[in-house]
């Protein structure tokens, strides 16, 4: 636990004591600001829906979600492995899981900080006399943070599988993008299959099962129909916590496996 904290501190410091972290932050904040700039007039100055839109409503949010975690994961895993500092970490008296969890927490905190800008906008609105619906904003923010955790863990897993930073980033990016796109595209594909299979027969049953399992894995859907509506749903909390746990577990195993394969 202590080791996790030490690693966490070091990773955060590594992000904020280099210009890179601030640059990423600036870019993300600019993207968020751009979203607000575009969406506020569109909703006629509707504070609540604009703020919640900035968290999960637009393509920009999901683009950040797909791009940032792989970048962070690449920096934290593949780059470290290439520069040899991973050897340093793995021979220091901390467990592998502490290393992985510390990095995961640091990256998630960084993303949480980026999303925290939305409550900050809310505060600005409040100061200007148009207070937002804080409960809803908080729920959406929490959802965004948990979703970031999900993607960070996925990115870490992908980035751990290779030494090459660029390949790691690409793999992580592909994994995150796939996690988002496969359910929706798969669902559409299945919808078009509907025309060819009956509702009662085996094919129809198969399509139904596939559809429902795809739906169960659809992050966008999970995010949209709970967090973004301003609801804390225990099932969603479980979803957004259990998958990262699985990915982190797999990452630790993968890290151990690397030792065998190296």
């Amino acid at each position: 636990m202590r080791g996790t904290l030490v690693i966490y501190r070091r990773e955060l410091a590594g992000l904020f004591l280099t210009p890179l972290g601030w640059l990423l932050l600036a870019l993300a904040l600019f993207a968020n600001g751009l979203f607000l700039y575009l969406v506020l007039p569109y909703t006629g100055g509707d504070v609540g829906s604009s703020l919640r839109g900035a968290l999960g409503g637009g393509t920009l949010f999901w683009a950040l979600m797909v791009f940032l975690p792989p970048l962070l994961a690449m920096r934290m895993m593949a780059e470290e492995s290439r520069s040899g500092t991973l050897e340093y970490l793995l021979t220091a008296p901390v467990s592998d899981s502490a290393v992985v969890v510390g990095k995961f927490l640091a990256a998630t905190t960084f993303l949480a900080l980026i999303w925290s800008v939305v409550p900050l906008y809310g505060l600005l609105f409040q100061l200007q006399g148009s207070p937002p619906d804080w409960g809803a904003v908080f729920a959406t923010w929490l959802g965004a943070v948990l979703t970031s955790g999900l993607f960070v863990s996925l990115g870490l897993l992908a980035a751990t599988s290779t030494n090459t930073p660029l390949l790691a980033a690409f793999l992580a990016f592909a994994a995150c993008l796939g996690w988002i796109l496969v359910p929706s595209f798969g669902g559409q594909l299945l919808n078009s299959l509907d025309a060819f299979v009956g509702t009662g027969d085996l094919g129809g049953l198969l399509v139904q099962t596939l559809r429902s399992s795809l739906q169960a894995m659809d992050v966008l859907r999970h995010f949209h129909f709970s967090w973004r509506m301003g609801v804390i749903d225990t099932a969603e909390v479980v979803f957004f916590c259990s998958w990262p746990c699985l990915f982190l577990f797999a990452t630790v195993r993968m890290l151990e496996g690397r030792r065998w394969r190296v």
Binding site: N32, G33, Y37, L40, G45, V117, Y121, F125, Q128, S130
Partner: peptide, 19 residues
């Protein structure tokens, strides 16, 4: 809750440029 136009302008200014 709809924010008036000048509020929107101010907040967007902060969000888009200052931050």
């Amino acid at each position: 809750q709809r924010a008036p136009a000048e509020t929107v302008t101010r907040v967007v200014q902060v969000a888009l440029w200052y931050l």
